[in-house]
């Protein structure tokens, strides 16, 4: 368990009046979480990764719902699951098995956006998570640090290195878009 999770649980003031139901939280967060999972793990298994993270939140809802930012908790779980090799392989396998029985996938992203996320997925895992949180949720350094339970300096470094790597690898795409 990340140290910040323990810290968050211990330091949060329990205010039952502001605790929302899990179903309301789920409906509010799901689409964003699927988008987040999609850019980190690929579209084929995005729903499964997001659903796994939500299932975790559901099982720990008594604690999660009382955190100051429950959405940060579920985004961190999702970020870790999306980049975890063992889980991703399992989820991908389940997703592949189900593909035949599922409704058609949503329209794919335009090629240059697909290429952008493909390059994000090639980044080291922490850089990929920071970049995805920054763009998908439009989060700043402090919010990303809270979400991933790390120092703001670490986030700045990952953001800077990630962007630099993406600039180099996407040079041709960026030039075409200019």
């Amino acid at each position: 368990m990340p140290s910040d999770e323990r810290k968050g649980s211990a330091s949060t003031v329990f205010d039952l009046s502001r605790v929302e139901t899990f179903d309301a939280f789920y409906r509010r967060e799901l689409a964003g979480l699927v988008a987040f999972a999609s850019v980190l793990a690929g579209p084929a298994c995005a729903e499964d990764v997001a659903q796994d993270a939500m299932l975790s939140a559901y099982r720990h809802w008594q604690t999660v719902s009382r955190l100051q930012v429950p959405s940060a908790w579920v985004r961190r779980v999702c970020a870790n699951r999306a980049v975890s090799t063992l889980r991703r392989r399992g989820v991908e396998a389940r997703a592949l098995v189900r593909l035949g029985s599922r409704r058609p996938d949503a329209e794919p992203l335009v090629p240059e956006h697909q290429a952008f996320w493909a390059e994000v997925r090639r980044l080291p895992r922490r850089q990929a998570q920071v970049i995805a949180l920054h763009y998908v949720y439009d989060l700043g350094v402090a919010e990303i640090a809270t979400t991933l339970a790390c120092a703001e300096g670490t986030v700045k470094a990952h953001l800077s290195r990630g962007r630099a790597t993406l600039s180099v690898r996407l040079g041709e795409t960026l030039a075409e878009q200019a």
Binding site: V34, V110, F116
Partner: peptide, 17 residues
């Protein structure tokens, strides 16, 4: 590019989910 790609990813997820 990142912001445009994220906006499209969010739109796609909102449509599909």
């Amino acid at each position: 590019l990142g912001r445009a790609a994220a906006a499209e990813a969010r739109r796609a997820a909102a449509d599909a989910v």
